[in-house]
């Protein structure tokens, strides 16, 4: 039995997808809550660690969002089409990330073999414009994310910094700040909603940044 057969979406996912494509945020929210756990289960076979898995799921949702107008339900099984579409995007995102990571590792090995950074920089041809612009876009997003975090009220900012940047659990955050865990969760929820609002305009750039592993120090899935 393959992943598609073993983990079906409940009936109505096709209708939710149609409403999401038409621009309904509530439909997207419902659809994402159905898809995210299934995507995580399916992608686990390609991605070993949780942090990277989070990145790939985020990447999948973003890529699907940017390409949503190209979704065409096939045949009579609209729910199955949604699942197949997201799974395909998810698999491609996982494989892209794996390829990029392996290229990066290969570059690091080449660098060591060639006698260090300075030597390689002397010999290297100028970087392709595409890579430059991709990096610039990712850096721009990082700057905007940092700026958005810095604009949060102090209580919310502390929670985000401890939870995201220091990778603490909510219980640890609550203990550190001497507040109830529920309070920490509420602050985190408000902070993430505020961040989402402020970062709404950078969706395409966010996708580029997420797909650029060597710049993902700000990565929401696992800070380096």
């Amino acid at each position: 039995m393959n992943a598609l057969e073993s983990d079906p979406l409940p009936q109505g996912a096709g209708a939710l997808m149609a409403r999401y494509i038409d621009g309904d945020p509530r439909a997207f929210k419902q659809l994402a809550s159905l898809l995210t756990p299934r995507l995580r289960r399916m992608l686990r076979r390609y991605v070993p660690d949780d942090a990277t898995l989070d990145d790939v799921v985020q990447m999948t949702l973003l890529k699907a969002h940017l390409a949503r107008h190209r979704f065409v339900p096939s045949g009579l099984d609209a729910d199955g089409s949604v699942r197949a579409w997201y799974y395909t995007i998810g698999r491609h995102a996982a494989l892209d990330l794996a390829r990029k990571s392996s290229r990066q590792r290969a570059r690091e090995v080449d660098l060591e073999a060639a006698g260090g950074v300075d030597r390689v920089l002397e010999d290297a041809a100028p970087s392709p414009d595409a890579t430059l612009s991709e990096d610039e876009a990712a850096r721009e997003v990082m700057t905007r994310v940092r700026s958005a975090i810095s604009e949060l009220p102090p209580g919310q900012r502390e929670v985000v910094e401890l939870h995201k940047l220091k990778e603490m659990t909510m219980a640890q955050v609550a203990e550190r700040l001497s507040i109830q865990e529920g309070t920490a969760r509420v602050r985190a929820h408000r902070a993430y909603k505020a961040l989402a609002r402020r970062l709404a305009g950078v969706i395409p750039a966010l996708a580029v940044a997420l797909s650029t592993p060597h710049l993902s120090g700000w990565s929401m899935g696992g800070p380096s």
Binding site: P25, F28, L61, A196, L199, A200, I203
Partner: peptide
Amino acid sequence: TPPESSPISLVQGAIEADLESLK
């Protein structure tokens, strides 16, 4: 489903905000 404050919820929130801004 991921909790409201999970990393994935930030991206979900950004997409919801994008849809709201399109509206």
